[in-house]
Structures are given as structure tokens and as C-alpha cells.
Amino acid sequence: MEKTKLSMYRSYRKLLHNYLGSNREEALHCARQWSKKMIDQDMSPEEMVSLHVAVFKELVAELPMETIDSFDLLLEVMNGYGRAHREHLNLRDRQRQLDAELEIAARMQKSLLQENKLNVKGVDFGVISVPAGIMSGDYYHYDIDDHGHIGVAVADVIGKGIPAAMCMSMIKYAMDMLPAQRLRPGTILQNLNRVVARNIDDDMFITMTYGSYNPECHHFCFASAGHEPGFIYSANTDMFHDMETKGIVLGVSPNVAYQEYTISLRHKGDFIVLLSDGVTETRINGQFLERNHIIQLIRKYIHLPAQTIVEQVHSEMEKIQGFQRNDDFTLMILRRNV
């Protein structure tokens, strides 16, 4: 320790000596290097001033009393800066710790969302979900039941960030707890609503669309709990229609029934689009993106596989927003391709 102090003293003496001599430019450059090194070594501002005073006294033999006294005053002032500096270091350490915890939580959350491919003959499927920050309040789900029907869902928790992410995991676990036999979309929402209503803050809620697609008869049966309406695309007419539904958001009251709707993907190329309101709540220069705009973007890539469409739409939305997402973004497409 003493050795380090001594070498520090010597280095600084050389630096100051150079500066007071003729090598000002070079000394200034060295001073900048010096401060970087000292910050790395956690040297406080008042310690730096003390070192300067000690070296200065040695280099300039007969300093006026006023100069020496003025350094005492400077030291006193620097004490305040020192306290602020130490507080800053503490905060920096805590921030690093929080970041690390958040990273782990985000990784855990990511593992809650499926990444395996959905391979069903006659179905082209794609999904993308991107959080606004590190953690997401959006949730999506897809699976195949014993009858070969595909269950799909997109849910959106109010708000974003950590509180939303915690609620999102509640939905995931509640979905996992549902009985193994196939349930109707309305029944699934009814069950989830009961769980959410019991476990959520008074001013929080979750929106969700759940649907089940039968690849044999091409019927899509769905129900919605106050969720942003999806679209149905008809290849025959080349038109998009809103999936208009009734149904209150999850979590408002425990006993709610959800109406079910059935549509048919009559032709090859017909598809369903499910999305979160992060897609339609996008604001560009203060103006909201209209639902029509999303349709235009999907149209642009309609000839490509579903997974490519959702990825391209997301990438275009990022571009128009200047890569600044305001909300979590989830987009899912299920297309009949036989």
C-alpha cells in the first residue's frame, strides 16, 4: 500500500514538474491519462488535492502562506465532492447488481415463451414478440392438442416492464394449469379470468384472444377478452376484415362468460392475424399508426412465409419509429396453405 502511494507520489511529482517546466502540452496529455487511472483506482477528489498540495510544497520551496492556506479551503470544498463521488460509486455498483438481476429475470421470461417450430401439415405459422424494454408484458402461446387442433393465444398485460412481466408469467402458469383435455376458447378465457381477477391489483388488467384452428375443416373458433381485434384475410377477395368480438378484459370481475365466434379459412392462402396493442398504439411524430397501415405492411410481404411476414413487419415498424419502441410488440399469423 505504502509502496503504491510512494510510486503515485513520484509519478505525480514528475507530471507536475513537467507541467511547471517546459513540457506543458505533453504534461496536459499525461494529466488526462492520470485522472482516468486514478478514477479507476477509486481515488477521491480530496485525496487528489492532498497529493497535489504535498507534491507542490516539495517542488516549490517557498510558497506564500496564503497559497498554502487556500489549499486547506479547497480541501474542505473537495470533501463535499468526495462524498458525492462515493455515493455515485455506490449507486453504480447497485445499478450493476440490478442490471444483472434484470438480465436473469429477462432470460427466465424468455424461456416462458415457446420457440419450437409449429409443424402442422397445411398450416403456415409465424410469430414475433419484442419487448419495449428488457422485459415484456406481452404473451403468446401455441400448441397442438390430442385432436390435432392448433391452440393460439396473444395476451397483453397493462403497462410494461417488470410489473407487466410478472403478470405475464401468471397467465403462462394459469394456462399450464388448465386441464389436459381440450377446452373451448370461451371456457379457457373464463378460467383465466377467474385466476387473474383473484390475483391482480385493482387497477391492472390483461387482454387476450384465444383461438383454436381445426386443420381438417379449416374452422377457427375464438373468443376475446377485451383484446385488440385481429384480422382475417381472405385470399379469394384479397380483403382484410377485423375480427370483431365482445368480451371484457381479464381481471375486472370473477364471473364472466366469453362469447365464442367461428370463422372459416375457406381457401388456400386465407389467414388470421393476432396482435398486441403495441402494434396499433405506435405513435410516429405524435400521430397514431392506423390499423390500415399494419394491413399495408402485411400486404407488402404477403407472398412470403408467415414467419418472414411478421419479422419484416416488425422491422419496418422499428424503422418508422426510429428504433424507439414505446410498447411491447407481438404479431402472429396462422395461414391455411393447402
Partner: peptide, 11 residues
Amino acid sequence: IDSTGLGIFIG
């Protein structure tokens, strides 16, 4: 009104 705002009305 965004969804957080809507939550206040539900509360």
C-alpha cells in the same frame, strides 16, 4: 387514454 389510464377507471 392508454391502457394504464384505463386501469385507473377499472380501479
